[in-house]
Simulated assay, not measured.
Amino acid sequence: MVSTTTTELMKKFFLLLSVWILHVQFLMAQPQVQSGQLESLGIFKSNFVQDRQVDVWLPNGYSSEQKYQVLYMHDGQMLWDANTTWNKQEWEVDENMGKLLEDKKVPPCIIVGVHNVEAIRHADYFPEKPFKSLKKASQDSIYALKRGTEPLFGGIQIDSDDYLKFLVKELKPYIDTHYAVYTDRSHTFVAGSSMGGLISMYAICEYPEIFGAAACISTHWPGIFSNENNPVPQAFFNYLEKHLPDPATHKIYFDYGTATLDALYEVHQLKVDEIMRTKGYTAENWETRKFEGENHSEDSWKKRLAIPFTFIMN
């Protein structure tokens, strides 16, 4: 017969073992970086959008004795470590930025990685004002679209205006007060790919006083997943013609590949390029690059990430 004391000891042992296993699982789920240091802010509370995870990458030698530029990046869970991503790919942001800083090709900076909420990512990142400029029939047909068996917009209304309010009115003030950063426009940037490219374009247009540069990588100009009978790109063009920020104080980078989903983009990017020229953008403050043979994936984006980083930060 097992004594009461032995039973209690066994209970404590298994409780401690369970806590240890959970701790190991937590550590295994956390992204590991090869350069610099990654700080998790945990689930960041918001009054505008659904709460979400936020990470802050600090470069090697980070010190509160100096000031750093700030780059806000979307799809934060895809940036650092392929071992923790759904498709086992990553942007290699820490490796890319760490090497640029080591070679002194960009000024000192920190990177804020804002995780997406998968089910509502399309609703968060789809530029709201261009969408609302569409006829109601077009809006309704777009809202009815599905990706697989799930609603494309997660069953909610497009709320990218609120997503930008979250970045500008909640997250940025926190970063500005908790890290040694410049807070002005000329040192504050935004970047993302695909739908993240669209919301980066939208961010610099909606908040030109906040963001001085945007990197829009593999920008998803169709908004949905077909170019056929699609009114969305024209709505984006009309919006850009009215809302592009002043080229004297802003820089914008675009790029695209030619394979998989990126094959849809060139026809639209060429029209965007015409608008950029008309609005006074030149090689000094705007760049569009085509990457022949590259597809729509983190494996493609990580290979060229140093190019937009260097362009927007210098």
Rank of each mutant, 00 (worst) to 15 (best):
S194T: 02
Q234L: 04
S193F: 02
G223K: 09
G212P: 08
N229D: 11
P208A: 07
F225R: 12
I199R: 05
I217V: 15
C216W: 04
Y202P: 12
G197P: 01
I210H: 12
G192F: 02
P231A: 10
Y202W: 14
G212Q: 11
I199C: 04
V232S: 06
A191V: 05
I199S: 08
A235L: 01
S194E: 04
E209K: 15
G192W: 07
W221M: 15
G192L: 04
Y207F: 14
P233L: 09
T219V: 10
I217K: 05
G223A: 10
V232E: 06
G196Q: 13
M201I: 00
V232Y: 15
P208T: 05
Q234T: 04
E209G: 15
I217G: 06
I210S: 15
A191P: 05
M195V: 00
G223H: 09
P231T: 12
Q234I: 02
E228I: 05
F225I: 08
G212R: 11
G197S: 05
E209F: 11
E209H: 15
A191I: 04
S194N: 10
T219K: 04
W221P: 04
Y202K: 12
V190S: 01
C216V: 04
A235Y: 00
S218Y: 01
Q234S: 01
Y207W: 11
N229V: 01
S200G: 08
I224K: 13
P233Q: 08
I224A: 15
Y202S: 09
G192I: 03
S226Y: 14
A235M: 01
C205W: 09
I224F: 14
A203R: 11
A215V: 12
Y207D: 09
C205F: 09
N229Q: 08
F225Y: 15
N227F: 05
N230W: 09
G212E: 10
